[in-house]
Design a protein around this nucleic acid. Structure first.
Lengths: 232, 232
DNA sequence: TCGTTCTGTAATATTGTTGTAACAGCAGGA
DNA sequence: TCCTGCTGTTACAACAATATTACAGAACGA
């Protein structure tokens, strides 16, 4: 859940924006004065700041400059809200460190859309698969069982990754060959058995297979039962 | 130097924008028709795309969708230019994958300012990368191992920089060639091996590779394990 | 211009993975 | 219970991926 700091002195507008952001399940913290805005940011470490430029006590531009000057906060995106629409103002705003600039009056939906744009691409698609104490890190190409790192070969890794990312689903040897070995394979389907064996030798603790289940007559599947309780 | 692809059918506007971008020392490639825009992007791998929404043959929205659908290009920021100013249009544009939306007529200086905003923060926050007693100064383009300065060649440096700035992550030779040699390379992937070897000869102390890890079947990664304890 | 360094490739060595065959064991049906 | 066919296991030869070396051409600086 993303945290947004909102600095806007107009009470109605503040509520309107806050309401809409929260409806989109953003977490909102804010102030209706520029004073203390920097402290708030330092405390909250927001993912985004929405900043009215015209504020009674402290100029929004000043706050933005201060945010940019702070190492901890420098990378935080800032969206300016303003009634000033002149070219110079906009450019000054952008050059001063704003990431976006919205001129009042604006449609709230556009503000929301622009906020979302800033968060797009942030999600690094959970690269880690977990089941029980078995962990598979796709970016680093390593698997761990508890603290112990497992030495999986490329094919073993790909097979486990395929099964783990579709837990419970049963795949025929044929399907597994297509998925892991590729469509242009020239490989016996008994090969799958051997790889399942090798995987089991590495990931199964005691004799009984807890992770990879054989489904007689059909193929294999990653066990949904046992590890599910601990799946994140 | 940043590369920008510009798609705009109005010849005058095209020239105007191109002139101004180049004055700011951006590299501009572009078309005055939507046809072939995707191919151009695939070839050029731009850092940013400026896209007119209303194009004669192919809709700008379509092009944007296609860019987002392409794995290689999906992360590229897109700025829409458009005469449509209705709320819905703007929001559709943003939700469709645009990163910014500028309504015609606009001031060129504002476009330039917005372009620059997208590149701000691209420059690495950390000027010095450290891992154990290996140190890489990106501003001065020198590497040190302890007190000793290493004589790295340009390619070696870029390769090490790329790996070091993404520690732990495994990259295929393909990816490394794209990142270090550029997309328009004409180089065998075995070349990567040779450079890894050369790097190792310079940065690894004893025989065993502590910094650059080979991941058989996948590629290489900068070792997260050993140096982590001393990472700043 | 020359000499030096850098660059990429090709050839070779080395390592460990890969896939198969053969057999053992087991489950389920009759 | 036996039989049959599916699955588990083993060992091994072929192989593919990587490491290493040597070299020729390109780029660079003096």
């Amino acid at each position: 859940m993303k945290k947004i700091v909102l600095i806007e002195d107009d009470a109605d507008l503040y509520s309107l924006i806050q309401y809409n952001l929260e409806k989109e399940s953003f977490q909102v913290a804010g102030l209706q004065t520029g004073k203390g805005a920097l402290e708030l940011c330092r405390r909250e470490h927001p993912d985004l700041v929405i900043l009215d430029v015209m504020l009674p006590e402290m100029d929004g531009l000043e706050i933005c400059k201060a945010i940019r000057a702070n190492t901890e906060l420098a990378a935080t995106p800032v969206i300016f809200l303003t009634a000033r629409a002149s070219e110079t103002d906009r450019i000054v705003g952008l050059e001063l460190g704003a990431n976006d600039y919205i001129v009042k009056p604006f449609f709230v939906r556009e503000l929301i859309a622009r906020v979302k744009v800033h968060f797009r691409g942030d999600k690094p698609v959970n690269k880690i698969l977990r089941a029980g104490d078995l962990e598979l890190d796709r970016t680093r190409c390593v698997a761990r069982l508890g603290v112990q790192e497992l030495a999986l070969t490329a094919t073993e890794f790909k097979l486990l990754e395929f099964l783990m990312s579709r837990p419970g689903k049963v795949f025929s040897r044929e399907q597994l060959l297509d998925a892991v070995w590729g469509h242009d394979r020239a490989v016996t389907d008994r090969t799958v058995d051997v790889y399942v064996l090798r995987l089991r030798q590495k990931i199964e603790r005691d004799g009984s297979p807890a992770f990879i289940r054989s489904v007689r007559g059909f193929g294999y599947s990653f066990n949904l039962e046992v590890p599910q309780e601990q799946l994140q």
